[in-house]
Design a protein around this nucleic acid. Sequence first.
DNA 1: TTGTAGGCGTTATCAC
DNA 2: GTGATAACGCCTACAA
Lengths: 340, 340
Amino acid sequence: MKHYTIKDIAKKLNVSISTVSRAFNDKYDIKKETKELILKTAEDMGYIPNPIAKKLSQKRSLNIGVVVPEFINEYYSEIVIALQEFLISKGYQVLVMQSDENEEQELINAQTLINNMVDGLIVAPTTGNRNMKYYQDRIKEGYPIVFLNRIEESVPVSKVVFNNMKWSFFATEHLIRQGYKKIYHLSGYKDLSVSYERIQGFKKAMNKHHIPKENYKIIETGLLAKEGMEVIEDLIYHHDVPDAFFCVNDMVALGAIRKLKDNGYKVPEDVAFVGFTETRMAELVTPQLSSVKQPTFKMAKKAGELLIERIEDENAPIETIVMNGEFNIRQSSVRESSIL
Amino acid sequence: MKHYTIKDIAKKLNVSISTVSRAFNDKYDIKKETKELILKTAEDMGYIPNPIAKKLSQKRSLNIGVVVPEFINEYYSEIVIALQEFLISKGYQVLVMQSDENEEQELINAQTLINNMVDGLIVAPTTGNRNMKYYQDRIKEGYPIVFLNRIEESVPVSKVVFNNMKWSFFATEHLIRQGYKKIYHLSGYKDLSVSYERIQGFKKAMNKHHIPKENYKIIETGLLAKEGMEVIEDLIYHHDVPDAFFCVNDMVALGAIRKLKDNGYKVPEDVAFVGFTETRMAELVTPQLSSVKQPTFKMAKKAGELLIERIEDENAPIETIVMNGEFNIRQSSVRESSIL
DNA sequence: TTGTAGGCGTTATCAC
DNA sequence: GTGATAACGCCTACAA
C-alpha cells in the first residue's frame, strides 16, 4: 500500500499542490468548496501528511523531547505520564529517552532529540554536571529547554524544583519531636542537587534543636533498596544502629527496613523511618511508611507549561518554580504511645 | 549559533555538496585526502548531519518506536530499559510512547511513530483489540512490527510472550501442595491475553488436583493495588475470605494483603499469597512475597532482535518465542510448619 | 482564490 | 574521483 502525497491528491483533483497544502493549513485563503473537496478526497484516499517533510520545511516538529535519568523509581514514570498527558492536550507528541543515570547517555539522548528537531526539551539531569556546558550552549542559541529537579544554579534557564530543604527539615524535625535521640540520614548521591538540599534540611533541623554532633550522621547511599540494605549491614557490623532514619527516598528506606527486620530489629519500635518522594508502596508496606509526597503531576505540568511558553515566545521570562508537597506521617515513625 | 549544512562545508572547501555527502557515507569512491579534509573541517565547524533530511531522502530513520500500555508497574519500565540498551548497541535510537492502558491512545502512538518514519515498531498492546485491524494492515504492507505479550493469535507477526499458563499452573499447584483448601485467583482484566492464560493455568491445576468447584473462584480485577484492596473489602463483607490467593501480579497481591492486615488477618497464617511478574518489592515487603519471575531483559532483547532481523530482511521468518521464568517461593505462601 | 517556483538538508543518478 | 541535478514531501513567497 503506497503512501499518498499531496502530489497524488493534486493530480487526482486537477489542482496545484499548493492548493492542496493550503487546504490542510487553515491560515491561507482558499475557497470553501475546494477545501472541503480536497479534505474529503484526502480522507478517502487514506492520505496522511508526512511529518518528516513538514519538519524539514517548517523547522518545527510539534514534538517535545523528555530526558529522564531513569524510570526505575516510580517518580519519573509519573513525571513522564503527567508530561505526556499535558503536552498531548497542547498538540505535541512526547518522545521519551532515559539516561540510565549515565551522563554520557544523557548527552546522547539530548543530542538525538535535538537533532531530530524536537521543538523543545525537558531535562531531568542525572548525577554530575559535565553536560552543563552543552546545555548552556544550546540555551545561548535560544533553544527552548526547561529543567526539572536536580539542577545547579549556574544555568540561566527555567526550572521546576521541589523545595527539598524545607520538607527535609520538616521530616527530620518530626523525628526529633517524636523523641528519637539518634537519627541518621541516608542521603543518596551527595553530588545530586536534590540530595544536597535534603542534607541541608536535615542539618538545619539538627541545629535548631541543638542535637549534639555525635547523635546524628549523614551516610551517602544511592537511590535503590539494595543500597539501603548495604548501609544497614555495615551499621549492624559496627554496632551503630540509631533510633531513627530519614532516607532520601522510599526505596532506600524499604531496603534498610528489610535488612533490619532480617536481623531481628522491630520497626518502628526499635528503629523508626521516614522516606521521601512518596511512592505507592508507602501505604502498602507494614508498617506503613511516613514520607514526603511531591506534587509530581503539578511539577510536570508546570514544566510543560514553561516549555511551551518558551517555544511560542522566545522572550518568555526565565522562571524558577519552587514547589511544596505534604508530609504524611504513618506508623513507621511514631512512638507506640502516640496516637496516629 | 547557526546549524551548518553540507552546503556550508562545500562552499568553505570549494568542493561540491555531493563530495561532502560522500565523505560521510563510506560506500562511495572518494579520494582519501579530500575525505579526511572534509571530515576534519566538518568536525571543526561543529557540523551535525540533519537526521530529518536524511530520513526524507533515505526513507529510513534508524529510529525504533516502542509502545507500551503503561509504565506504572515496574515490568514495562524494565522492558523499555532493556530494549533501549539492546537497540542502542545496534545503532538505533529508541522512541518510547505509553498508552495509559487506553486503546485510542495506543493507536495514536503507533500512528505517530510510524508517521515519524521509525524503521520498526515494538508494541505491547493494551486491553481490548480494536486496533488489531490497524496492525494487520501495516503488517500486510510489510511494515516491521514485533509484539510483546498480550497478543491474540489471529495476527501473523513475530511475537515474544511469556508462558503464562505453565507458570500460573506451577504457582497454583504450589498453593495446593502447601495444603491450602480454598484458593481464589485475582485475575486482572479478563480480556487481556496474559490474564486469560493465567486463568487457564489456574484452572488446570485445580482440575489436576480434583479441587471441587466450590473451593476455588476466579475474580476479575485490574492490575493495581487499589483493585486488590477493593476485592478484599468485598470478600470480607461477604464472609468469603479463602485460605490463599493467587494474584495476576504483585501489586494486586500487595493491595489485597494490606487490606487483610488492616482487618486483622495474618499473612500467611490466615491467608497465603502468591504474586506474578515479580517486582523488586517481593523481597522487600513483610512477609516476603512468593512470585513468578519473568525474564524481562531476555524478552525485551529477543523482541529487539526479531525486529531488527525483520527490518534488515523483509523475508525474515515469523516467529513466536515463548519464554519461561522461575517461581520464587517465599514466606507469603508457606505453612508455618514448612521449612523454607 | 489559485498556480508557479524555490527552498528545507540530504541522498542518489547521471555525466564528465 | 568529482560535480550537476533531480528527487524526498511539504511549505510559502510571489505572481497571476
